[in-house]
Design a binder for these strands. Structure first.
Length: 957
DNA sequence: GAGCACTGC
């Protein structure tokens, strides 16, 4: 009894649920049908107004009022009829009992007493069944009412949309309704509108409860079921969803704006795609099958180690093992081409190890462009070899050296190998160097190319492997003295590439439309959309949400996951969560998803063909971060993201003509579009004097090299002959930009190294310290302004942020409270620790200037002396040297104030020329600190202007 | 009152 009552309480719409269970039980299950039946041509709200539905509504109200009210109250209403009768009877019986207690004389009375006691015994066990029977009867009535409702709907539909052509969904829905009616009608006695209480008493006057309830329960039993209870919740949910859909959404032929012969869903700007090409998969499926077989066979019998060995044998590269080893033996340099999944990164070093290249204490190095890749690959290989990570197989990345003297296979970031060159220019501990993902052309990789090529001439025993994706293999081969190319097939499913028929004027809108198009017309599979930046992702998210709002009950659930670098990690994790059944995930990502993140289950890629690209202008010394069309290689890479777990589809929002004729083959390598000051300093430190004629694979513009040389000279890292000075040598020790390292070196003079390395670390992590969520911008801004005090710029604010965090014991909670990104702070701490260690190495004491912020500012000037600007008479800033108009970025604490002379960390062209991370300084200090760069005249002029402006203001006031 | 792709030492 309790069980039933509790159940009633916890489920406010039990009647509804049971009704619907009954309904669904009787109707043949058809998933597609039941999900498409949602919504209705007639508007539920309007239906509610009609009189014939008031009865139903009253029932609904009653259900609602029953929620949370005591159980007793449940006995009211239609469901209580039987119970009321029963109660009445019970009361009578009780009265009789009272009577017998006093009289108790005749036999007749004794018999009566006996009967009552028997009745009471059976009461407890039967009351449960009685309630159920009563409820079942109520449900029967509901079925009838619902049936009536559906009939009316059909009638309405016929009247309203009789002559209009319906969409497939609407037709389906109507058919579904008609079928529902037929099915219910064909049920025996469905239309009988009275209920017979079975005979309760036998002829001899004895109550026969079995007989009484058996009949009531019988009708609501499913064949084969043991009890009359129904317990499917899923169908209930489906039905409720449909009801909600009816109540909130208007949809149907009447809402149709344009008349077309046939349609499913009408979008204002439906995009027409043409299939232009197919990227073939490479004999994947057979492999996969054998993979699975192998896996299932080996799961129980084999150990983990042998299982790994089995998997190794199934990789495409396995068939080429001997040939590869022979090629490596015969040639000093080999270009290996293998697409994702070929197994080159994990297998090649192992083959070399097995072939004896690690004898005599030599190691094999394999470089990766990213830290995560180096770590995860090393972990994988150590498992395959059955050794502990850090022993025979290790990795070495910044802040983390996971190797030992036993290590023979060393995975490392490319920057790390570059640092290794500084220590040991002969790389004498390595027998093989493999540069993986060479096609990514990071700066470090490009510099490594030149150094390794040179080294290979002096060290004939050193084997060099350059591994890359297909496209530019010939280029690598040409560069490395026509080294042979070894091709390994990849493992990928075929991908259909679709291009638009006409160019799309608004890629954002087109991307959103395409996503919806895919969502309603294509089968299961997640969607990945590439967008240039955070802003575009956020607006795409909003538009998408807005557009599916009106369709929620018509289409499957669409889960929107934004991903970009600055997104806090805990929000990034969302994209890896498996998509729930029946739903679809759409990932809105920046280029982060092109190489850095791999998301499982992506079947559709939407590629608008743009990305943000940073490029450097040596004349203005300014970086620009602007939206550019992507390259063909990049487009291929993006498309490839869809074919990882099954055949994929790539929707390109540009024409195939654009692709063929307007897009570059490859993205301009980083080395040709970056400030090279750091690279030049590194090369100089390696003893390469002629940096202009260094063997670059793609030489950077000479202007950029010259400008870098100039800067290094100004900073005192190079002397007049272009040779590295002591200052330059010390600067090169620090793995940061030359301006930052100069600032650190200068902190020795101003006795504030403690503060300066903190600022350097905070500047180095970039602009991801403060987090500003869209819905809490004011709060976030207020929290940020707490770190700004009088006479305090962005640099000092960063210092305060770090120190406050330190005082809060590096607390994560503190970060949340202050809208600070923990991830960035942890990184800043790592960098700071590293810098602190390096201070010692170059012989600088860690000293604090305490509260003397001027000392800190002077150290900043020493590093960033070309980055100064002054306020002109129009209230705009002009750089001292280039006379270029710049603006203080609104995110800066100084954006509102007018400081007459500022030092900035960087200058980036986005919508305007913005200086970021700004501090006000005394112009006189510029001359003091850098008399070789600033003349007294520059500063005097500023003073005069200031006076003139002051007077102007005075007269105005 | 703007908006910052991704890396690496």
């Amino acid at each position: 009894m309790n069980r039933i009552l509790e159940f009633d309480c916890s489920c406010p719409t039990t009647e509804t649920r049971l009704f619907c269970e009954e309904l669904f039980r009787r109707i043949p299950r058809n998933k597609g049908l039941s999900s498409s039946v949602s919504g209705g041509s007639s508007d539920y709200q309007e239906l509610r107004k009609k009189k014939k539905y008031t009865l139903l509504d009253a029932g609904d109200e009653e259900e609602r009022s029953n929620v949370g009210v005591g159980n007793e109250k449940k006995d009211s209403g239609e469901s209580g009829n039987g119970r009321r009768r029963y109660r009445k009877r019970r009361q009578e019986e009780e009265d009789e009992e009272e009577e017998t207690r006093f009289q108790h004389q005749t036999k007749e009375e004794e018999m009566k007493d006996k009967m009552v006691r028997r009745f009471k015994d059976t009461m407890k066990s039967e009351i449960v069944a009685l309630r159920e029977a009563s409820r079942a009867r109520y449900l029967k009535d509901r079925v009838k009412k619902k049936l009536e409702e559906i009939r009316d709907e059909i009638e309405d539909d016929d009247n309203m949309f009789g002559g209009i052509k319906l969409s497939e969904f609407e037709t389906l829905r109507q058919n579904y309704k008609r079928r529902s009616v037929e099915v219910i009608k064909s049920r025996p006695e469905a239309d009988k509108d009275y209920y017979e209480m079975p005979e309760a008493y036998d002829r001899d006057g004895v109550i026969n409860q079995d007989k009484r309830f058996a009949a009531a329960v019988q009708r609501y039993k499913e064949p084969g079921e043991t009890g009359g209870k129904m317990n499917s919740f899923r169908d209930q949910e489906v039905w409720e969803e449909n009801q909600i859909g009816k109540a909130t959404v208007k949809f149907g032929s009447k809402d149709k704006k344009t008349k077309s012969d046939d349609y499913q869903y009408v979008f204002d700007n439906q995009i027409v795609f043409t299939k232009t090409s197919v990227m073939d998969g490479e004999k994947y499926e057979n492999d996969l099958c054998s993979d699975r077989q192998q896996e299932s066979q080996s799961r129980d019998k084999l150990t983990l180690f042998t299982k790994h060995q089995d998997q190794r044998r199934n990789l495409p590269i396995y068939h080429y093992r001997e040939e590869l080893l022979k090629a490596i033996k015969d040639h000093q340099i080999l270009v290996v081409v293998g697409e994702t999944g070929s197994g080159k990164t994990t297998q090649l070093p192992q083959y070399l190890h097995e072939a004896g290249y690690t004898e005599h204490g030599k190691k094999i190095a394999c470089t990766q462009p990213r830290r995560v890749a180096a770590m995860s690959v090393a972990a994988r290989v150590s498992k395959e070899m059955g050794v502990k990570l850090g022993h025979e197989v290790g990795y070495s990345i910044r802040f983390e050296d996971c190797t030992s003297n036993k290590t023979v296979l060393e995975y490392m970031t490319d920057g790390m190998l570059l640092r290794e060159f500084l220590v040991d220019p002969q790389l004498s501990s390595y027998s093989v160097v493999m540069v993986d993902e060479a096609h990514e052309r990071t700066i470090s990789t490009d510099i490594l190319f030149g150094l390794l090529k040179d080294l290979s001439r002096s060290r004939s025993d050193l084997k060099l492997l350059i591994s890359s994706a297909t496209l530019d293999a010939e280029k690598f081969s040409d560069y490395f003295d026509r080294a042979p190319i070894f091709k390994i097939p990849g493992r990928r499913f075929p991908i259909d590439v679709l291009n638009t028929k006409a160019p799309e004027p608004d890629y954002l809108d087109a991307a959103v439309s395409t996503v919806l198009q895919i969502h309603v017309t294509q089968q299961q599979g997640d969607i990945l959309v590439f967008l240039p930046g955070q802003e575009e992702i956020e607006s795409a998210e909003e538009i998408l949400k807005h557009r599916i709002r009106g369709l929620r009950s018509k289409i499957a659930e669409l889960i929107i996951c934004p991903v970009y670098g600055n997104l806090p990690t805990d929000l990034q994790v969302k994209i890896f969560e498996p998509t729930p059944e029946g739903a679809r995930k759409v990932v809105l990502a920046t280029n982060i998803a092109e190489t850095s993140l791999t998301i499982d289950g992506i079947k559709y890629v939407v590629d608008p063909g743009f990305c943000k690209l940073k490029s450097y202008n040596p004349r203005t010394g300014m970086d620009s971060l602007l939206v550019h069309p992507i390259s063909k290689a990049s487009a291929m890479q993006r498309a490839g993201r869809s074919g990882r777990t099954g055949p994929g589809l790539c929707y390109r929002l540009y024409t195939s003509y654009n692709y063929q004729n307007d897009m570059e083959e490859n993205t301009v390598p980083e080395i040709q579009r970056t400030n090279l000051a750091n690279v030049i300093l590194t090369l100089k430190n390696l003893g390469i004097h002629d940096v202009v004629h260094f063997d670059y694979m793609d030489p950077p513009p000479v202007e950029v090299i010259v400008q870098a040389l100039e800067l290094l000279t100004v900073l005192g890292a190079l002397d007049i002959k272009g040779e590295l000075t002591l200052v330059g040598r010390r600067m090169a020790e620090f793995p940061v930009d030359p301006m930052l390292s100069k600032m650190i070196i200068a902190s020795e003079k101003y006795r504030c190294s403690e503060e300066v390395i903190t600022i350097a670390a905070m500047l180095d992590v970039g602009n991801s310290i403060f987090y500003r969520p869209k819905n809490k911008q004011v709060l976030a801004d207020n929290a940020k302004m707490n770190f700004y005090t009088e006479n305090c710029g962005d640099h000092i604010a960063l210092l305060k942020v770090y120190n406050s965090w330190k005082e809060a014991a590096f607390s994560t909670q503190w970060c949340f409270e202050n809208f600070i990104q923990v991830r960035s702070m942890k990184r800043a701490r790592d960098i700071r620790d590293q810098l602190e260690g390096l201070l010692e190495r170059v012989g600088i004491m860690v000293t604090s200037s305490a509260d003397d912020l001027d000392a800190v500012k002077k150290a900043i000037i020493s590093g960033f002396l070309p980055h100064s600007a002054k306020l002109d008479k129009f209230g705009l800033y002009q750089t001292f040297k280039n006379r270029q108009t710049v603006h203080i970025h609104p995110s800066s604490g100084l954006a509102q104030s007018l400081s007459r002379c500022i030092i900035y960390h960087e200058l980036v062209l986005t919508t305007k020329e913005y200086t970021r991370q700004v501090t006000e300084v005394n112009p006189q200090w510029l001359v003091e600190i850098a008399p070789h760069y600033y003349s007294q005249k520059d500063v005097e002029a500023l003073k005069l202007k200031k006076m003139a402006r002051g007077e102007g203001r005075a007269t105005q006031g």
